[in-house]
Amino acid sequence: MEELHSALVAPRGIWWKAAGRQERIWVTVSFVWCMILFAMMPLWHIKGGQNPSGIRARVEPEAFRRRVDQFIADYKIGSEAGVPLVAPPPGSDVYLLARMWQWYPALVLEEGKTYVLHLSSIDVNHGFNLQPFNVNFQVVPGYDYGLRITPNQAGDYRVICNEYCGIGHHLMTGKILVKPAGSAAVAPVAQGGTR
């Protein structure tokens, strides 16, 4: 009876006592669940298809901008809404530059093919948010985030900025067009966005 007290009371004597059966069971169950939570992450690296590892490197904003310009010069097929439209060959390195307040350039990819998508910013932090699939990555100036991506569905995707980047944050939308597998050489696409 003396041993029953509230948490406001300074316990006297030795309180380091064995726990009851129910507490022991709950602690054990919780511990096992925590281990499962932990194991899922390495497991998904081995078995799963979506991991944020990527190829990570530092890059000077100027250097990244030059790579983007070269990339556009190599594969440009037109322009849309004021940004170049670029159709790189499957398997290539693809560049997407974030800046206040634009995703630059717009990309044309092919379904089922793998690309390395390089993300970086030349000013402040931005956030890569792919719609309607809701895939998200942080875009940090000075860092090149190279993600191996394999679009698994054709469609006209949008890129939204989801890291606050100043007063024009809400103007920052971009485009990734994924063509159905095996469709002929990419043709220029009509002006204007969908929907």
Partner: peptide, 15 residues
């Protein structure tokens, strides 16, 4: 999150 206008009314590509 932290976004003023998800209607993207003035943005170049609509969504």
């Amino acid at each position: 999150r932290r976004h003023w206008d998800i209607s993207f009314a003035q943005a170049p590509f609509k969504y």
